[in-house]
Protein backbone atom coordinates (compact mmCIF):
# COMPACT_ATOMS: atom_id res chain seq x y z
CA UNK A 1 0.00 0.00 0.00
CA UNK A 2 1.46 3.31 -1.07
CA UNK A 3 -0.37 5.53 1.38
CA UNK A 4 -2.71 4.07 3.99
CA UNK A 5 -4.21 7.40 5.02
CA UNK A 6 -4.96 8.45 1.45
CA UNK A 7 -6.53 5.04 0.86
CA UNK A 8 -8.79 5.41 3.90
CA UNK A 9 -9.73 8.93 2.88
CA UNK A 10 -10.66 7.81 -0.62
CA UNK A 11 -12.57 4.79 0.68
CA UNK A 12 -14.63 6.89 3.10
CA UNK A 13 -15.97 9.00 0.26
CA UNK A 14 -16.39 6.09 -2.11
CA UNK A 15 -18.44 4.17 0.46
CA UNK A 16 -20.71 7.10 1.33
CA UNK A 17 -21.51 7.71 -2.35
CA UNK A 18 -22.11 4.03 -3.00
CA UNK A 19 -24.42 3.42 -0.05
CA UNK A 20 -26.49 6.55 -0.67
CA UNK A 21 -26.69 5.64 -4.37
CA UNK A 22 -27.92 2.17 -3.43
CA UNK A 23 -30.48 3.58 -0.98
CA UNK A 24 -31.87 6.00 -3.56
CA UNK A 25 -32.05 3.23 -6.15
CA UNK A 26 -34.54 1.47 -3.86
CA UNK A 27 -37.00 4.18 -4.91
CA UNK A 28 -36.76 3.22 -8.58
CA UNK A 29 -40.30 2.35 -9.67
CA UNK A 30 -41.75 3.48 -6.32
CA UNK A 31 -41.40 7.27 -6.50
CA UNK A 32 -44.39 9.41 -5.51
CA UNK A 33 -44.70 10.75 -9.07
CA UNK A 34 -42.91 9.79 -12.28
CA UNK A 35 -40.69 12.90 -12.46
CA UNK A 36 -39.40 12.38 -8.94
CA UNK A 37 -38.89 8.69 -9.49
CA UNK A 38 -36.68 9.68 -12.43
CA UNK A 39 -34.94 12.36 -10.38
CA UNK A 40 -33.99 9.88 -7.66
CA UNK A 41 -32.76 7.33 -10.20
CA UNK A 42 -30.69 10.05 -11.91
CA UNK A 43 -29.12 11.14 -8.65
CA UNK A 44 -28.51 7.53 -7.70
CA UNK A 45 -26.67 6.99 -11.00
CA UNK A 46 -24.56 10.11 -10.46
CA UNK A 47 -23.57 8.88 -7.00
CA UNK A 48 -22.71 5.43 -8.24
CA UNK A 49 -20.73 6.97 -11.11
CA UNK A 50 -18.88 9.13 -8.62
CA UNK A 51 -18.12 6.24 -6.30
CA UNK A 52 -16.58 4.34 -9.21
CA UNK A 53 -14.05 7.13 -9.76
CA UNK A 54 -13.19 6.90 -6.06
CA UNK A 55 -12.96 3.09 -6.02
CA UNK A 56 -10.78 3.01 -9.11
CA UNK A 57 -8.38 5.36 -7.37
CA UNK A 58 -8.59 3.30 -4.16
CA UNK A 59 -7.66 0.17 -6.11
CA UNK A 60 -4.61 1.93 -7.57
CA UNK A 61 -3.44 3.19 -4.17
CA UNK A 62 -3.97 -0.23 -2.61
CA UNK A 63 -1.90 -1.75 -5.43
CA UNK A 64 -2.75 -5.37 -4.65
CA UNK A 65 -4.24 -6.12 -8.05
CA UNK A 66 -7.81 -5.91 -6.75
CA UNK A 67 -10.49 -4.42 -8.96
CA UNK A 68 -13.00 -1.77 -7.94
CA UNK A 69 -15.66 -4.51 -7.92
CA UNK A 70 -13.69 -6.66 -5.49
CA UNK A 71 -13.25 -3.73 -3.12
CA UNK A 72 -17.02 -3.20 -3.13
CA UNK A 73 -18.14 -6.82 -2.88
CA UNK A 74 -15.67 -8.50 -0.58
CA UNK A 75 -15.55 -6.23 2.41
CA UNK A 76 -17.87 -6.72 5.37
CA UNK A 77 -19.79 -4.00 7.21
CA UNK A 78 -16.99 -3.22 9.69
CA UNK A 79 -14.66 -2.44 6.79
CA UNK A 80 -17.11 0.01 5.24
CA UNK A 81 -16.32 3.63 6.00
CA UNK A 82 -19.43 5.50 4.97
CA UNK A 83 -21.09 7.95 7.35
CA UNK A 84 -24.05 6.51 9.25
CA UNK A 85 -26.45 9.03 7.70
CA UNK A 86 -26.42 7.41 4.25
CA UNK A 87 -27.34 3.94 5.50
CA UNK A 88 -30.50 5.18 7.24
CA UNK A 89 -33.69 3.79 5.69
CA UNK A 90 -35.63 5.71 3.04
CA UNK A 91 -38.68 6.14 5.28
CA UNK A 92 -41.28 8.32 3.58
CA UNK A 93 -40.44 10.79 0.81
CA UNK A 94 -39.78 13.56 3.36
CA UNK A 95 -37.22 11.44 5.14
CA UNK A 96 -35.46 10.55 1.89
CA UNK A 97 -35.43 14.23 0.93
CA UNK A 98 -34.00 15.35 4.24
CA UNK A 99 -31.30 12.67 4.26
CA UNK A 100 -30.37 13.76 0.74
CA UNK A 101 -30.39 17.42 1.73
CA UNK A 102 -28.04 16.78 4.67
CA UNK A 103 -25.69 14.90 2.37
CA UNK A 104 -25.91 17.32 -0.58
CA UNK A 105 -25.22 20.43 1.54
CA UNK A 106 -22.06 18.64 2.63
CA UNK A 107 -20.98 17.20 -0.71
CA UNK A 108 -21.47 20.35 -2.77
CA UNK A 109 -19.07 22.25 -0.50
CA UNK A 110 -16.79 19.27 -0.09
CA UNK A 111 -16.22 18.96 -3.84
CA UNK A 112 -15.99 22.71 -4.28
CA UNK A 113 -13.10 22.76 -1.77
CA UNK A 114 -11.50 19.50 -2.90
CA UNK A 115 -10.91 21.01 -6.36
CA UNK A 116 -7.92 22.74 -4.71
CA UNK A 117 -6.46 19.47 -3.41
CA UNK A 118 -2.76 19.05 -4.09
CA UNK A 119 -3.55 15.49 -5.16
CA UNK A 120 -4.35 15.89 -8.86
CA UNK A 121 -6.58 12.85 -9.02
CA UNK A 122 -8.72 14.03 -6.10
CA UNK A 123 -8.96 17.46 -7.72
CA UNK A 124 -10.11 15.87 -11.00
CA UNK A 125 -12.76 13.72 -9.29
CA UNK A 126 -13.94 16.82 -7.43
CA UNK A 127 -14.17 18.93 -10.59
CA UNK A 128 -16.34 16.32 -12.23
CA UNK A 129 -18.53 15.62 -9.20
CA UNK A 130 -19.04 19.21 -8.12
CA UNK A 131 -21.13 20.01 -11.19
CA UNK A 132 -23.43 17.11 -10.39
CA UNK A 133 -23.65 17.94 -6.68
CA UNK A 134 -24.93 21.40 -7.65
CA UNK A 135 -27.97 19.81 -9.32
CA UNK A 136 -28.53 17.52 -6.38
CA UNK A 137 -28.56 20.21 -3.72
CA UNK A 138 -30.88 22.35 -5.81
CA UNK A 139 -33.30 19.44 -6.07
CA UNK A 140 -33.25 18.38 -2.42
CA UNK A 141 -33.24 22.01 -1.19
CA UNK A 142 -36.25 22.87 -3.36
CA UNK A 143 -38.12 19.89 -1.96
CA UNK A 144 -37.30 20.75 1.66
CA UNK A 145 -38.85 24.17 1.01
CA UNK A 146 -41.81 22.79 -0.88
CA UNK A 147 -42.68 20.21 1.76
CA UNK A 148 -41.85 22.39 4.77
CA UNK A 149 -43.81 25.34 3.43
CA UNK A 150 -46.52 23.13 1.95
CA UNK A 151 -49.57 21.57 3.53
CA UNK A 152 -49.98 20.81 7.20
CA UNK A 153 -49.25 17.16 6.53
CA UNK A 154 -46.11 17.75 4.42
CA UNK A 155 -44.85 20.22 7.04
CA UNK A 156 -45.37 17.67 9.82
CA UNK A 157 -43.63 14.98 7.83
CA UNK A 158 -40.62 17.21 7.20
CA UNK A 159 -40.52 17.96 10.91
CA UNK A 160 -40.59 14.26 11.71
CA UNK A 161 -37.81 13.65 9.19
CA UNK A 162 -35.65 16.31 10.84
CA UNK A 163 -36.28 14.76 14.27
CA UNK A 164 -35.32 11.35 12.91
CA UNK A 165 -32.15 12.34 11.05
CA UNK A 166 -30.70 15.44 12.68
CA UNK A 167 -28.50 13.43 15.03
CA UNK A 168 -26.79 11.85 11.99
CA UNK A 169 -25.95 15.20 10.39
CA UNK A 170 -22.85 16.16 12.37
CA UNK A 171 -20.67 13.19 11.47
CA UNK A 172 -20.14 14.57 7.97
CA UNK A 173 -18.32 17.67 9.20
CA UNK A 174 -16.62 16.24 12.30
CA UNK A 175 -13.12 15.16 11.24
CA UNK A 176 -11.78 11.76 12.19
CA UNK A 177 -8.04 11.06 12.31
CA UNK A 178 -7.93 10.23 8.61
CA UNK A 179 -9.49 13.54 7.62
CA UNK A 180 -7.37 15.59 10.00
CA UNK A 181 -4.23 14.06 8.56
CA UNK A 182 -5.49 14.46 4.98
CA UNK A 183 -6.05 18.15 5.60
CA UNK A 184 -2.65 18.60 7.24
CA UNK A 185 -0.97 16.92 4.31
CA UNK A 186 -2.66 19.23 1.84
CA UNK A 187 -4.88 16.84 -0.08
CA UNK A 188 -7.94 16.81 2.19
CA UNK A 189 -10.62 19.38 2.90
CA UNK A 190 -10.77 21.67 5.95
CA UNK A 191 -13.96 20.42 7.58
CA UNK A 192 -14.19 23.34 10.01
CA UNK A 193 -14.45 25.77 7.09
CA UNK A 194 -16.84 23.44 5.30
CA UNK A 195 -19.05 23.21 8.36
CA UNK A 196 -19.53 26.98 8.43
CA UNK A 197 -20.66 27.10 4.83
CA UNK A 198 -22.90 24.08 5.23
CA UNK A 199 -24.53 25.29 8.45
CA UNK A 200 -25.34 28.59 6.74
CA UNK A 201 -26.93 26.80 3.79
CA UNK A 202 -28.99 24.51 6.05
CA UNK A 203 -30.19 27.50 8.07
CA UNK A 204 -31.11 29.45 4.94
CA UNK A 205 -33.17 26.63 3.43
CA UNK A 206 -34.88 25.51 6.63
CA UNK A 207 -35.88 29.09 7.42
CA UNK A 208 -37.39 29.50 3.97
CA UNK A 209 -39.18 26.19 4.51
CA UNK A 210 -40.72 27.53 7.75
CA UNK A 211 -38.90 24.80 9.67
CA UNK A 212 -36.74 25.19 12.74
CA UNK A 213 -33.06 24.34 12.87
CA UNK A 214 -32.69 21.99 15.85
CA UNK A 215 -30.47 23.28 18.63
CA UNK A 216 -28.95 19.93 19.50
CA UNK A 217 -25.36 19.44 18.36
CA UNK A 218 -25.22 15.79 19.44
CA UNK A 219 -24.18 13.51 16.64
CA UNK A 220 -23.89 9.79 16.09
CA UNK A 221 -20.47 8.99 14.72
CA UNK A 222 -18.10 6.16 13.93
CA UNK A 223 -19.25 5.19 10.46
CA UNK A 224 -16.09 6.64 8.98
CA UNK A 225 -14.09 4.26 11.17
CA UNK A 226 -16.23 1.21 10.51
CA UNK A 227 -18.87 1.39 13.25
CA UNK A 228 -22.32 1.17 11.71
CA UNK A 229 -26.00 0.98 12.50
CA UNK A 230 -27.81 -2.32 11.96
CA UNK A 231 -29.04 -1.16 8.54
CA UNK A 232 -25.75 -1.45 6.68
CA UNK A 233 -25.62 -5.25 6.86
CA UNK A 234 -28.97 -5.55 5.12
CA UNK A 235 -27.91 -3.13 2.39
CA UNK A 236 -24.71 -5.07 1.79
CA UNK A 237 -26.48 -8.40 1.62
CA UNK A 238 -28.47 -7.03 -1.32
CA UNK A 239 -25.63 -5.15 -2.90
CA UNK A 240 -22.99 -7.86 -2.64
CA UNK A 241 -25.07 -10.93 -3.32
CA UNK A 242 -24.40 -11.24 -7.04
CA UNK A 243 -20.66 -10.76 -6.80
CA UNK A 244 -20.35 -13.20 -3.90
CA UNK A 245 -22.48 -15.87 -5.58
CA UNK A 246 -20.85 -15.37 -8.99
CA UNK A 247 -17.43 -13.78 -8.42
CA UNK A 248 -15.74 -11.90 -11.25
CA UNK A 249 -18.68 -9.84 -12.51
CA UNK A 250 -18.04 -6.31 -13.75
CA UNK A 251 -20.04 -3.09 -13.28
Amino acid sequence: MKDQNLYNYVLQHADSSLILGQRLAEWCGHGPILEQDIAMSNISLDLIGQCRMWYQYAAEIQDEGKSEDEIVAFRDAWDYRNVQLVEQPNGDFAQTIFRQFLFDTYSVHFYEMLINSKDERLAAIAGKSHKEALYHVKWSGDWVIRLGDGTEESHDRMKAAIDELWSYSGELTKPNETETKAFEEGYGVNLAALKEKRDAKIREILTEATLEVPESTYTHEGGKDGRHTEHLGYILSDLQFLQRAYPGQEW
Partner: peptide, 8 residues
Protein backbone atom coordinates in the same frame (compact mmCIF):
# COMPACT_ATOMS: atom_id res chain seq x y z
CA UNK B 1 -13.83 12.46 -21.27
CA UNK B 2 -17.07 11.31 -19.63
CA UNK B 3 -20.16 13.51 -19.82
CA UNK B 4 -21.80 12.53 -16.54
CA UNK B 5 -19.93 10.27 -14.16
CA UNK B 6 -22.81 7.78 -13.99
CA UNK B 7 -23.78 7.91 -17.67
CA UNK B 8 -24.30 4.31 -18.84
Amino acid sequence: TPTYSGCP
